[in-house]
Design a protein around this nucleic acid. Structure first.
Lengths: 191, 191
DNA sequence: ACCTGAACACCGTTCAAGT
DNA sequence: ACCTGAACACCGTTCAAGT
C-alpha cells in the first residue's frame, strides 16, 4: 500500500518540507522567543521533523539566519514618503528605517549579532539615496550624507533595542537630531 | 607532610585563586578571542583549575561578564579634554568615548550583547555631563543634549564594530556629524 | 573556605543509512 | 531526492563530596 507512505514516519518518508517553510518557521521562532530561541532542534521539532532535515533544506545555522534576515528585509515594504521639503522627506525615510527595526526588535537583534544590520535596512536605504539625490547632492557629498544619516539612525536603533521603554520617549529626540544631521549636509537652498 | 598539600591536586587543594585573578583572565580571553572564546571551561583550563571553581569565586557566566565589563570600564581612564570652546571640548569627549570603545572591540561587543554598552561609557559620560553644564545647559535641555550625543556616538560605535576597516575612514564623518548634533543643542553664544 | 569530578540538560554538526 | 537516528565535540550549571 504505497499511499500509506505519505503519513508514515521514519527515515525516507516524505515530509513535504521546502526551504520557504523552514525559513518562515525560523522567523516565527525568533519573533516569539528572540535569537536564542532559534536552535536547530527546536525548529525541527516545531516542523515535526528530524533535526538534520533542516540541514538538507537550508544548510547550517549561519545560512539559516542569513535567510531569515533576508526574508524580513523583503517584508520591509516600500513605505510612503511624507513631506514637501527635502529635509522633511529624508527625515521621513530615516524615521521609517528606525521604526521598522524597532517594530521587530528580535529579528533586528539577530541581524545585528551576525553583522547584517545594513542588509535589513537595504530596501529603505534605496529610498534614502533617491531623496538625497533629489535634494541636489551628488558623488562624495551624497555618499557622506547617506552614511552620516545611517550611522545616526543605527545609534537610535541599537540603544532602542536595549531599552524599548525609553525608545518611544526618544521619538522627538530622534526627529530633532536627524534633522540637525541632514541640515548639516544639504545645500543652502534645500534646507 | 602537610607542606606537600600546597602543590597537590585534587579536591580540597588550595589553588590560591581570587576573584580579581579570574576576572583578569576572563578579560584577557575576551580580548584575545572575542566573546565566544569566554567559556567557563576554557577559562578554568587557562587558570589550571576545575571548571566549577569559577562558580565559587565569581558566580555564573552572566555575573562573570558583568565583572569583566566593569573591569574594562575602570581601565577607561579619565582622559585629557582638549579644546577651548564648549563645542570643541564636548566633541573631544565624544571622540574619546568612541575611540575607547573601538580600541577594545571584543569587550565592547561583549558589553553590547549583554546590554551594558552604557556602563562601558559611564566614566567618560560624567566628563560629558560636566562639559555640557559648562556650556550653559541645565535640566531638560542638558539631559536631551547628553542623550542625543550618546545615541549618535552609539551608532558610530556599533557600525564601527561591524566593520573596523571603514571605521577609521569614518573619523572625519564622525567629527562633522557630532559637531552638528552638539551645535543644535548649544545656546547661541556658546557655539 | 575552597576546590573537585560526575552528571544533567542542552547545543551545532557530520555521516552512514534508510526509502 | 529527501529524511532519519546515532554519534561527536562542545556548552552552562548543579551538587555531593573531598580537605
Amino acid at each position: 500500500m504505497p499511499a500509506a507512505a505519505a503519513t508514515a514516519s521514519g527515515p525516507g518518508r516524505r515530509a513535504g518540507l521546502d526551504p520557504d517553510e523552514v525559513v518562515a518557521a525560523a522567523l516565527a521562532l525568533v519573533e516569539a522567543g528572540g535569537p536564542e530561541a532559534l536552535t536547530m532542534r527546536k525548529l525541527a521539532a516545531e516542523l515535526g521533523v528530524g533535526t538534520t532535515t533542516i540541514y538538507w533544506h537550508v544548510g547550517s545555522r549561519e545560512e539559516l539566519i542569513a535567510a531569515v534576515v533576508r526574508r524580513r528585509s523583503e517584508q520591509q515594504a516600500a513605505t510612503p514618503i511624507r513631506g514637501a521639503t527635502p529635509i522633511d522627506r529624508i527625515a521621513s525615510v530615516a524615521t521609517h528605517i528606525m521604526r521598522g527595526a524597532l517594530d521587530h526588535p528580535q529579528v533586528t537583534t539577530l541581524a545585528y549579532q551576525v553583522g547584517a544590520l545594513s542588509e535589513l535596512e537595504q530596501p529603505l536605504e534605496e529610498a534614502l539615496v533617491a531623496e538625497i539625490a533629489a535634494a541636489g547632492l551628488r558623488g562624495r557629498a551624497a555618499a557622506d550624507a547617506l552614511r552620516a544619516i545611517l550611522l545616526t539612525v543605527a545609534g537610535f536603533i541599537v540603544v532602542g533595542l536595549e531599552d524599548p521603554a525609553t525608545a518611544k520617549a526618544d521619538a522627538r529626540l530622534f526627529d530633532r537630531t536627524i534633522r540637525a544631521v541632514i541640515a548639516d549636509r544639504l545645500p543652502e537652498e534645500a534646507s
